[in-house]
Design a protein around this nucleic acid. Structure first.
Lengths: 258, 258
DNA sequence: CGGAGCGTTGAGCAACGTCAAAAGACGTGG
DNA sequence: CCACGTCTTTTGACGTTGCTCAACGCTCCG
């Protein structure tokens, strides 16, 4: 069974290195190659974080944005005065993690690494001078943040309207679709480098109930999560169980449907 | 007890009339007066819809966007093949209802009126020629769609992490804050022109349980929903019960906090 | 006057959370 | 190599929340 790595090409990168060969994967494919080659030189550095590290905090005024190259990042809204917080979004390689900070300036949530991560940093002043002269690129980046918003709406639907079983199936379907887009090729076995508590946080369930639901999915021959890997046994069935329709991701191959 | 109307000034507007004096309320206040006066002439018409009317459909390719002037509008994601759908966002007077269709082209959800509504229409080609020459306005509209995304994230948090009582309190707190922003002045009694089933749809509960929860809120002396009105008895307590912090709305008066 | 939609309440039940315990996975230091 | 601590997964028992189904009253409107 083939096993992919989330960030094969970049896992050995050195922090602080100049950012020359950032791959155009996942969401970044919304930019065409010419646009990509115009944008990439403006990334000023590549940085890395260990897992479970707070990268930015709610209320921070950012002068830069980060493109995720390798690893997984969560966006979390802290609740109450204690240390509890809720995961409201997940970012995959090729995603901008906080591009919304460019027009918005301040973050409404924390940005946290779930695994070891590699990110490319672009300063807002560099981005501004670039975008001021490139309307099409400007429009495309706006569009990419709007796909992000579409994903948020999907999460609202999933965590509001679906019961645990369908909700978990839907979550794993989205994980599959987005990892596939990041890797560039479909597989039936990926690393799922997050804990069941992380999944519980993202789906609005408890870790105990996520565990039971994963067992149900396994017994239903949809997919199995074990040893940090997600193995998909029947993708069609998994999508059906989770009422999953990937149109909201606005991937090129699904564009026709939306 | 004073009672406001959602759209006092415009409720008698005639559909199809030219859009001259669209008020700068709610979210539209993110644009400064000069920007507003540049944008307004490009609205080509004012249109009205009866309540419970589908304004746009998922998959539609839009060549225009709509600014809500009066009434309430919901954004709904249809589920399965039957007629069920889930409310993932609510729009108030001063909000753009589907500005994201400008960069995104196709809608990932339906747009439905919950009350009688008045909207101003702007064509995307008119908007494009305007924005191509006005970087600041362009950036501001991008920013307004990002506030929308921030609200989506808040909904994910609310419907995932809060139990029915807190969730409903939080929902009503948001309603209060956004209506206040639309009206321009705070009050303790507004019309709440949506059914308990609509609220159930938006909060991920059943209409029966919403009903019980509203009674609890009433008995707790937080607020009461009756006769199509929301009366707030103790705003501080309501916010506390719902763990509500309005920072995510990016209203000018809360900007300092975020 | 009759129907339709909405609000309200009750009874019973399924889904899910909480608490607790134990076993596996993994790294660390001896 | 083993012993140890920590984190994660897994399972059981039990309690609670919130859903389902059903009934009835209310208001509005034809």
């Amino acid at each position: 069974m083939p096993e992919h790595r989330l960030s094969r090409k970049f896992q050995d990168d050195v922090s602080g290195a100049p950012a020359e060969n950032i791959p155009r994967i996942g969401m970044a494919q919304h930019l065409d190659p010419e646009q990509w080659s115009k944008l990439v030189p403006h990334f000023s550095e590549v940085i890395q974080f260990a897992s479970n590290t707070k990268i930015s905090s709610r209320g921070d005024k950012l002068d830069h944005s980060l493109l995720l190259i390798g690893g997984l990042v969560a966006r979390k809204i802290p609740r109450g005065s204690d240390s509890k917080s809720t995961c409201v979004a997940l970012q995959f390689p090729g995603d901008f993690v906080d591009l919304h900070a460019f027009p918005l300036k301040r973050l409404d949530h924390d940005v946290v690494s779930l695994t070891q991560t590699t990110l490319a940093l672009i300063r807002h002043d560099a981005l501004a001078t670039l975008l001021d002269h490139d309307i099409n690129l400007s429009r495309k980046l706006w569009m990419m943040t709007m796909v992000d918003a579409s994903i948020h709406r999907h999460w609202v639907m999933r965590n509001s309207a679906l019961r645990a079983f369908a909700r978990t199936a839907n979550f794993l379907s989205e994980f599959d679709a987005r990892i596939t887009s990041s890797l560039g090729s479909e597989s039936n076995c990926y690393p799922l480098p997050i804990t069941q508590s992380d999944m519980a946080d993202a789906t609005g369930l408890t870790n105990v109930h996520v565990n039971r639901t994963l067992r149900e999915l396994r017994e239903d021959n949809c997919c199995s999560v074990a040893g940090g890997n997600l193995t998909i046994h029947d993708r069609t069935k998994l999508h059906e169980r989770g009422q999953f329709d990937p149109a909201f991701l606005y991937l090129p191959k699904h564009h026709a449907k939306l």
